[in-house]
Protein backbone atom coordinates (compact mmCIF):
# COMPACT_ATOMS: atom_id res chain seq x y z
CA UNK A 1 0.00 0.00 0.00
CA UNK A 2 1.39 3.38 -0.93
CA UNK A 3 -0.06 5.19 2.08
CA UNK A 4 1.76 3.23 4.74
CA UNK A 5 5.51 3.02 5.26
CA UNK A 6 6.96 -0.47 5.15
CA UNK A 7 8.44 -1.68 8.40
CA UNK A 8 11.55 -3.78 7.87
CA UNK A 9 11.30 -7.12 9.59
CA UNK A 10 14.96 -7.24 10.42
CA UNK A 11 16.48 -4.61 12.65
CA UNK A 12 20.12 -3.76 12.74
CA UNK A 13 21.72 -4.40 16.06
CA UNK A 14 25.22 -4.10 17.41
CA UNK A 15 26.39 -2.20 14.38
CA UNK A 16 28.69 -0.26 16.68
CA UNK A 17 30.62 -3.44 17.56
CA UNK A 18 33.69 -3.49 15.38
CA UNK A 19 31.60 -2.55 12.43
CA UNK A 20 29.91 -5.92 12.45
CA UNK A 21 26.44 -5.69 11.02
CA UNK A 22 24.35 -8.10 13.02
CA UNK A 23 20.75 -8.72 12.52
CA UNK A 24 18.32 -10.66 14.60
CA UNK A 25 14.79 -11.80 14.04
CA UNK A 26 12.16 -9.67 15.64
CA UNK A 27 10.23 -10.82 18.68
CA UNK A 28 6.69 -11.89 17.91
CA UNK A 29 5.46 -8.75 19.69
CA UNK A 30 7.47 -6.59 17.30
CA UNK A 31 6.22 -8.23 14.13
CA UNK A 32 3.76 -5.81 12.64
CA UNK A 33 0.20 -6.63 11.84
CA UNK A 34 -1.86 -5.54 8.88
CA UNK A 35 -5.42 -4.53 8.18
CA UNK A 36 -6.79 -5.96 4.94
CA UNK A 37 -9.96 -4.75 3.23
CA UNK A 38 -11.77 -7.36 1.13
CA UNK A 39 -13.86 -6.93 -1.97
CA UNK A 40 -17.61 -7.32 -1.52
CA UNK A 41 -20.55 -7.17 -3.92
CA UNK A 42 -22.34 -4.37 -2.07
CA UNK A 43 -20.18 -1.32 -1.50
CA UNK A 44 -19.80 1.07 -4.42
CA UNK A 45 -16.31 1.89 -5.62
CA UNK A 46 -16.79 5.61 -4.95
CA UNK A 47 -17.90 4.83 -1.38
CA UNK A 48 -14.90 2.58 -0.68
CA UNK A 49 -12.48 5.23 -1.97
CA UNK A 50 -14.17 7.86 0.19
CA UNK A 51 -13.95 5.65 3.30
CA UNK A 52 -10.20 5.26 2.67
CA UNK A 53 -9.80 9.04 2.33
CA UNK A 54 -11.92 9.75 5.37
CA UNK A 55 -10.58 7.12 7.76
CA UNK A 56 -6.94 6.73 6.74
CA UNK A 57 -6.44 10.26 5.48
CA UNK A 58 -5.25 8.95 2.11
CA UNK A 59 -5.07 11.48 -0.68
CA UNK A 60 -7.42 10.95 -3.61
CA UNK A 61 -4.85 9.11 -5.74
CA UNK A 62 -3.79 6.70 -2.97
CA UNK A 63 -7.40 6.00 -2.02
CA UNK A 64 -8.25 5.31 -5.65
CA UNK A 65 -5.30 2.92 -6.01
CA UNK A 66 -6.22 1.04 -2.83
CA UNK A 67 -9.87 0.86 -3.86
CA UNK A 68 -8.95 -0.47 -7.32
CA UNK A 69 -6.65 -3.03 -5.73
CA UNK A 70 -9.57 -4.24 -3.58
CA UNK A 71 -11.79 -4.34 -6.65
CA UNK A 72 -9.38 -6.14 -8.97
CA UNK A 73 -7.31 -8.31 -6.60
CA UNK A 74 -10.12 -9.00 -4.14
CA UNK A 75 -8.27 -7.35 -1.26
CA UNK A 76 -5.75 -4.71 -0.28
CA UNK A 77 -3.58 -4.16 2.77
CA UNK A 78 -4.54 -0.69 3.94
CA UNK A 79 -2.59 -0.36 7.18
CA UNK A 80 0.35 -1.86 9.03
CA UNK A 81 1.31 -1.51 12.69
CA UNK A 82 0.61 -2.94 16.12
CA UNK A 83 -2.27 -5.34 16.54
CA UNK A 84 -4.49 -3.11 18.70
CA UNK A 85 -4.35 -0.33 16.12
CA UNK A 86 -4.99 -2.74 13.24
CA UNK A 87 -8.00 -4.10 15.12
CA UNK A 88 -9.35 -0.58 15.56
CA UNK A 89 -8.93 0.03 11.82
CA UNK A 90 -10.77 -3.21 10.99
CA UNK A 91 -13.62 -2.30 13.34
CA UNK A 92 -13.79 1.16 11.79
CA UNK A 93 -14.10 -0.47 8.36
CA UNK A 94 -16.89 -2.67 9.73
CA UNK A 95 -18.66 0.44 11.04
CA UNK A 96 -18.75 1.68 7.44
CA UNK A 97 -19.98 -1.69 6.19
CA UNK A 98 -16.72 -2.75 4.55
CA UNK A 99 -15.18 -6.18 5.18
CA UNK A 100 -11.80 -6.13 6.89
CA UNK A 101 -9.48 -8.54 8.67
CA UNK A 102 -6.37 -8.32 10.83
CA UNK A 103 -3.37 -10.50 10.03
CA UNK A 104 0.22 -10.86 11.07
CA UNK A 105 2.37 -9.17 8.46
CA UNK A 106 4.13 -11.75 6.28
CA UNK A 107 7.67 -12.33 7.54
Amino acid sequence: MPAMPTVPLLVEEGAEEEGALLTRERHAAEVPWTTTVWNDPVNLMSYVAWVFRRHFGMDAAAAERAMLQVHHDGRAVVAQGNRELMERHAEAMHEYGLQATVERAPA
Binding site: D40, E91, H94, E95, T101, V102
Partner: peptide, 26 residues
Protein backbone atom coordinates in the same frame (compact mmCIF):
# COMPACT_ATOMS: atom_id res chain seq x y z
CA UNK B 1 -22.08 -12.37 9.43
CA UNK B 2 -21.92 -9.58 6.81
CA UNK B 3 -22.79 -6.91 9.41
CA UNK B 4 -20.29 -8.13 11.99
CA UNK B 5 -17.48 -9.88 10.17
CA UNK B 6 -14.81 -11.69 12.11
CA UNK B 7 -11.64 -9.56 12.00
CA UNK B 8 -9.45 -12.58 12.80
CA UNK B 9 -10.51 -14.92 10.06
CA UNK B 10 -7.35 -17.02 10.25
CA UNK B 11 -6.77 -17.10 13.99
CA UNK B 12 -9.45 -18.91 16.05
CA UNK B 13 -7.89 -17.89 19.38
CA UNK B 14 -7.79 -14.18 18.60
CA UNK B 15 -11.20 -14.44 16.96
CA UNK B 16 -12.62 -15.82 20.19
CA UNK B 17 -10.92 -13.09 22.22
CA UNK B 18 -12.33 -10.40 19.92
CA UNK B 19 -15.82 -11.84 20.17
CA UNK B 20 -15.57 -11.87 23.96
CA UNK B 21 -14.09 -8.39 24.43
CA UNK B 22 -14.92 -6.19 21.46
CA UNK B 23 -17.88 -7.46 19.47
CA UNK B 24 -20.48 -5.97 21.80
CA UNK B 25 -18.90 -2.52 21.45
CA UNK B 26 -19.13 -2.70 17.66
Amino acid sequence: RALLPDPYRHDPELAEEWRRLSRRGL
